[in-house]
Design a binder for these strands. Structure first.
Lengths: 197, 197
DNA sequence: TTTTGTAAGTAAGTTTTACTCACCTTTTGT
DNA sequence: ACAAAAGGTGAGTAAAACTTACTTACAAAA
């Protein structure tokens, strides 16, 4: 079996980009296999040579997008020293990516979580890496006495991830622009210092 | 045209409860109309007498669940005086409801947001009420100098809602129990005082 | 009491769409 | 050179969502 590289079977590439393009204008459910094939200039049968089913195509496209996203996040955090600065880097890099790549954001935030198969996909494996990264930064911050010692790393990770997602959710759904800078510094401010007077 | 009450057409009730039950064991996509009809003891055709399509059935079932949830949240917040106490009431009531009613939680958090029609449904209208309630409490807290004056009500609302959802997401997806008390006080603690030492 | 109009419910289609399978064609390793 | 494997095709299948023409129950008006 030949390795599946980023450029190898032209058909595979065409199918994935065709699908990605279609996801820019409509939701997963209303995109048909016939449409994907026609748009890619291949036959329906070929799609099933490279993808188990329609959802597998979705997961693999997400996986590709997420790979780029994850390495961006890793680079940005590595460039920062303090725990808070690292967390702000994650928040802003995430919001920036979701803002710039709406297809990626819509797949990740709206289209995959509903089916069990997703949680066995390579895309979800990357999501786990991403959330583990946040948790590790938090743990490190506690160890270095930058964060309060009673902070629950799991809970804080969830609060940050939830904040990121919900902050851009409306913009992603209704295709509106997001002020990434304002939102990320706002989130970090709330999480760092709290809102109570 | 007769009014559609909570008990009126037996068929309608049977369809909705049948669907709700099925949602307890499998996801929306893999539930078929035939299955719903058989389980309810009615014919497939009847479903389309009361519901525009399969998704409309989903939205109406969510709407019913959400109505009860919303009034619980309203009651709990009305019983508190301070802004922080009201917010904690919202967080704990939400987590409690999601923990107890998994069908409701899974529909709301995983199954509806992917299709545009949802945002015109009566269910989404209630979600808007719910998030507006949070925002109003925040605004009130700022006005009463309980919260910092530079707090952005929209952003804080999103952070809280995101924190709620992400905190129970894993538990809802993988059907695990959630420590509602610990989670809600943890969230309120982070949002109130921050995590920075 | 009969009529009549409407809501409740049925049963047998139709159509769409994801998916399959048997078959060609091109490339590649030995 | 040639077998084997990968790339690609096109017609066909099955299942599931949705339609439509129909019947039955039932309440209020005449």
């Amino acid at each position: 079996m030949k390795p599946v590289s980023k450029t190898s079977p032209p058909g595979r590439i065409k199918i994935m980009t065709s699908f990605s393009t279609l996801m820019g204008t409509k939701d997963f459910q209303s995109i048909t296999i016939a449409e994907i094939a026609k748009n890619a200039g291949v036959t329906e049968g070929l799609i099933y040579k490279y993808f188990k089913d329609k959802k597998d195509l979705l997961y693999q496209v997400l996986c590709q997008h997420f790979a780029g996203f994850l390495s961006l996040v890793q680079d940005r955090t590595a460039a920062e020293n303090s725990c808070i600065a690292k967390l702000e880097a994650i928040v802003s890099a995430s919001l920036e990516s979701y803002n710039q790549n709406r297809v990626f954001a819509r797949i990740l935030l709206l289209e995959v979580r509903n089916s069990p198969a997703y949680f066995d996909s390579c895309a979800y494996a990357m999501v786990k890496k991403y959330s583990r990264l946040i948790r590790e930064i938090v743990c490190d911050g506690i160890a270095k006495k930058e964060l309060k010692p009673d902070t629950d790393p799991f809970l804080l990770q969830k609060v940050i991830l939830g904040a990121i997602e919900h902050t851009c959710l409306k913009q992603v759904i209704f295709d509106r622009e997001l002020d990434v800078q304002a939102a990320s510094s706002g989130i970090i401010n709330i999480v760092s210092y709290g809102v109570k007077k």
